[in-house]
Simulated scan of single mutants.
Amino acid sequence: MLLRRVAAALVAVFALAGVQLAGATPAQAAVKVLYYDASQAQEFIAVVNQGAQIWNARVTNVRLEPVTAGRTPNIRVYADNGWPRTYTTSLGNGYWYMGREAVNDGYYKPRIAAHEFGHILGLPDRRTGLCADLMSGSSAPVSCTNPNPNATEAATVNRSFATSATVAPSAYAWVG
């Protein structure tokens, strides 16, 4: 009985002093790292890296990193003459194309890259026409140079990776 009272008194003293005891708060989930391979993105490798960094600066539960030797990438990025498009196999996994047709039409390359990464991160096209909405894609004007996800888009990605949400395989394509 005396031992319990002493232990309770020590806990109270530590709490008043601001000392946090182990197990006092729930453990934070580890950041999910997704590896991408941009080696086949041809002249767009730098802009693919920029698109990844845009997401890394705005979300906390997932991080996009270039694939390192010995690892299998979650994401593969290609370049071709068509429209940008993404094929997901599950949340955080799939491949996408940096299509030259959109680039040649004047769409902002970093926006295209960030948008396509957005699909891999679980976001669908919204086609709102608003430049403030990254996932509005080609429905925003060609003059739109905003490559950043808005607060709702970033929060949705954070929530999906915090809960390990499942996303069905999908295909997304820009429409000219």
Score class of each variant (00 low, 15 high):
55 W>F: 08
122 G>S: 15
93 N>M: 10
57 A>E: 12
47 V>Q: 14
80 D>K: 02
47 V>R: 02
49 N>I: 00
112 I>V: 14
35 Y>G: 05
111 R>A: 13
63 R>L: 08
88 T>Y: 00
118 G>K: 11
121 L>V: 15
69 A>H: 02
95 Y>T: 05
113 A>Q: 02
71 R>W: 10
71 R>P: 01
118 G>S: 15
75 I>L: 05
123 L>Q: 15
61 N>D: 09
84 P>C: 15
117 F>M: 05
35 Y>F: 15
105 D>T: 12
100 R>G: 14
76 R>A: 06
119 H>N: 08
102 A>H: 05
66 P>A: 04
84 P>D: 11
103 V>I: 14
115 H>Y: 05
91 L>S: 13
39 S>L: 05
95 Y>W: 06
96 W>G: 07
121 L>E: 14
41 A>R: 00
82 G>Y: 08
56 N>K: 08
73 P>N: 09
99 G>R: 02
79 A>H: 04
37 D>Q: 00
90 S>M: 10
41 A>F: 04
110 P>N: 06
76 R>V: 03
54 I>L: 12
87 Y>S: 06
123 L>G: 03
56 N>A: 12
104 N>P: 10
91 L>F: 07
114 A>G: 09
48 V>H: 06
91 L>V: 11
122 G>M: 03
70 G>M: 01
114 A>Y: 01
82 G>I: 03
100 R>T: 09
96 W>E: 04
54 I>Q: 10
60 T>D: 09
68 T>R: 15
63 R>Y: 10
104 N>K: 13
119 H>E: 03
98 M>H: 07
124 P>K: 03
99 G>L: 04
74 N>F: 12
67 V>H: 04
42 Q>G: 14
103 V>Q: 04
67 V>E: 03
123 L>E: 14
103 V>K: 06
113 A>G: 03
52 A>N: 07
104 N>G: 10
55 W>H: 09
68 T>S: 09
96 W>Q: 01
53 Q>A: 15
79 A>D: 06
99 G>I: 03
68 T>F: 07
75 I>N: 12
112 I>E: 13
49 N>Q: 15
37 D>K: 00
76 R>E: 08
110 P>V: 00
82 G>S: 11
82 G>L: 09
75 I>Y: 00
53 Q>K: 06
115 H>I: 06
38 A>W: 01
85 R>S: 09
50 Q>E: 15
75 I>K: 02
116 E>V: 00
55 W>K: 12
59 V>D: 09
106 G>F: 04
99 G>T: 01
100 R>N: 11
50 Q>T: 00
60 T>P: 00
53 Q>H: 06
41 A>W: 02
113 A>V: 08
66 P>G: 06
98 M>E: 01
69 A>S: 12
112 I>C: 11
113 A>F: 04
76 R>K: 06
87 Y>H: 09
68 T>G: 13
38 A>C: 04
114 A>K: 08
42 Q>C: 05
84 P>V: 10
41 A>L: 05
92 G>S: 13
108 Y>R: 12
55 W>M: 13
120 I>F: 00
61 N>W: 10
110 P>R: 14
110 P>K: 15
67 V>N: 01
115 H>A: 11
70 G>F: 08
74 N>G: 12
49 N>P: 00
71 R>H: 07
58 R>V: 08
61 N>I: 01
110 P>F: 11
58 R>F: 08
